[in-house]
Design a protein around this nucleic acid. Structure first.
Length: 300
DNA sequence: TGATGGAACGCGCTTACCTCA
DNA sequence: AATGAGGTAAGCGCGTTCCAT
């Protein structure tokens, strides 16, 4: 089952390759904080509103349905529901709204389906127990394909998909909801792992710096060091690249001179070169994040 | 023009059912 | 055969958005 899941695109693996980064953009409202740090992440799942038109289903509608669903509801019930848009005894909700210019194109069908989705929806057998209908592999595959194209559906798309798969629109809707939830969960796990790694790197670096500091303090105590050491004020840090400048031949280095020692400062876009001082972020992905954060909070 | 109410929708949480080891 | 764990379809409540009034 896990392997199957991976095939279906739920494998948001943690071993970020060299220049990939976790995407925080999949779901609205999740990891907003982090999202701001990765504004250049591309949306893996464009919003449905971008593709709500009929072209969304240019995915061939050929005979996917042949022998498709083992679990299918008796055709009489399903099709009657879907075609007529009367899915349940309580589907008396008015379908005359005409609102939502874009969303409820197929007014009747959708609203009937919607009505069935809230409240008593036992249209399968009329009993109270809800039946668990496992979707077939083919059905899942088609849904996955569709999900890859757009992770939300407008009513038209929902209906078309439902018809194509021999499911109720509500089932398609639920599947998409659950699928979004799974994606988000998976993404959250990936994000957590990513942050954990960042934390570990920072901890290591902190430890290393503490050690270095201790060594420097010890050195400072020794008289010989004091004699050789130039005054600390001559240690300058490049505000752009955050590197400690090489000890100048003479003290009182001006900023211009300092920059002359750093050819990279000639780069037009300073953000393109923001070398980290201590190799702080070992993972390339974190460098990206750091760059974004630097861009958000530029120094001078 | 802003306030208000209804409809539709998505999400989070949860339950119920199914499959498999 | 029984059972517990994990996966997932589905129910429900709530918040948000859009639109008509």
């Amino acid at each position: 089952m896990m392997a199957e899941k991976a095939d279906l695109g739920l494998s948001l693996s943690l071993n970020f390759p060299a220049d990939t980064k976790p995407s925080f953009n999949h779901m609205p409202g999740t990891f907003n904080l982090l999202r701001t740090t990765t504004p250049n992440c591309s949306d893996s799942y464009p919003l449905s509103s971008d593709r709500n038109t009929s072209d969304a289903f240019r995915v061939e509608t050929r005979s996917f349905l042949k022998g498709i669903d083992v679990n299918r509801i008796p055709a009489t019930v399903t099709e009657a529901e879907d075609e007529a848009g009367v899915s349940s005894p309580n589907s008396t909700i008015s379908s005359i709204s005409g609102k939502r210019s874009e969303r409820d194109v197929p007014v009747n069908d959708n609203e009937g389906e919607r009505a069935s989705s809230r409240g008593l929806s036992d249209d399968e057998d009329g009993e109270n127990c809800r039946k668990k209908l496992r979707l077939s592999k083919d059905q899942s595959a088609v849904l996955e394909e569709s999900f890859k194209e757009h992770n939300t559906l407008n009513p038209k798309q929902k209906l078309a998909l439902a018809k194509k798969l021999g499911l109720r629109p509500r089932q398609v809707e639920v599947w998409f909801q659950n699928r979004r939830a799974r994606t988000k969960l998976k993404q959250t796990e990936v994000d957590c792992e990513f942050l954990k790694r960042c934390c570990e790197n920072l901890t290591d670096e902190n430890r290393r710096l503490q050690k270095e500091l201790q060594e420097l303090r010890a050195l400072k105590m020794s008289p010989q060091f004091y004699m050789q050491m130039a005054p600390p004020t001559t240690l300058t840090m490049c505000p752009s690249c955050e590197r400690v400048a090489a000890p100048p031949a003479s003290s009182g280095v001006t900023k211009v001179e300092h920059h002359h020692n750093h050819p990279h400062l000639a780069v037009s876009n300073p953000n393109q070169h923001r070398a980290l001082p201590f190799n702080l972020w070992s993972a390339p992905t974190t460098q990206v994040v750091h760059r974004q954060m630097s861009a958000l909070h530029p120094r001078s």
